[in-house]
């Protein structure tokens, strides 16, 4: 009986594991090295400033980059306003490292839609918050500078991609 139960459990487990394994995440990418557009260069810099501000808990830097009506949208959650978000990232959230990739920008003059992947190593109140995230940001022009107005973010994977080799390892 015990053995049969074990076998049934094993078969069930094989299906559970097999199902996601069969899901083709996306077709293999043809490796290519791109020349980023000016907007990708600009917003890569701004996104890095934002993440560095979170890392260093630099409230002044974050407030410069965020619009007053800034909101974050996540799956299965209400929008989080800046006044609720800032105390979290400036408090017990610890961003250890991050990386931005696959950025593209649609520039509409005073508004820009910025899409990218963000991988991070982080924790919040002892819980591991590392992983890979798909982010869509809406930036608005404010005078000569840009401010982040809306962020839409979804966790894609809990696995942080292997950092690229530098040749110095």
């Amino acid at each position: 009986m015990c053995l049969r139960g074990f076998l049934c459990f094993s078969i069930l487990l094989s299906f559970v594991v097999a199902a996601p394994a069969q899901e083709p995440v996306k077709p293999a990418l043809q490796p290519k090295i791109v020349t980023a557009t000016r907007q990708v260069t600009l917003f890569s810099g701004l996104e890095k400033q934002l993440l560095t501000g979170i890392q260093k808990k630099d409230q002044a830097a974050l407030k410069t980059l965020l619009a007053d009506d800034f909101e974050i949208w996540m799956p299965n959650s209400d929008a989080v306003a800046m006044e609720d978000w800032l105390p979290v990232v400036l408090g017990k959230f610890s961003l250890k490292s991050f990386r931005i990739s696959q950025m593209s920008v649609r520039d509409f003059g005073d508004t820009a839609i910025v899409k990218f992947m963000r991988s991070q190593k982080a924790d919040f109140q002892g819980k591991d918050e590392s992983g890979e995230f798909f982010v869509v940001d809406v930036w608005k022009k404010s005078g000569d500078s840009w401010q982040l107005s809306d962020r839409y973010v979804s966790k894609v994977s809990s696995i942080v991609p292997v950092p690229r080799p530098s040749g110095k390892e």
């Binding site: 490796p31 090295i33 990739s101 696995i159 991609p161 292997v162 690229r164």
Partner: peptide, 25 residues
């Protein structure tokens, strides 16, 4: 079966193969 599916999943998962996130191989 489990081993084959595990390996298949690794091959499909972006960033887990030899192709680096920036395309370098």
């Amino acid at each position: 079966i489990l081993a084959v599916n595990f390996l298949a999943a690794q091959a499909l998962r972006p960033g887990s193969g030899d192709i680096r996130p920036n395309g370098h191989v």
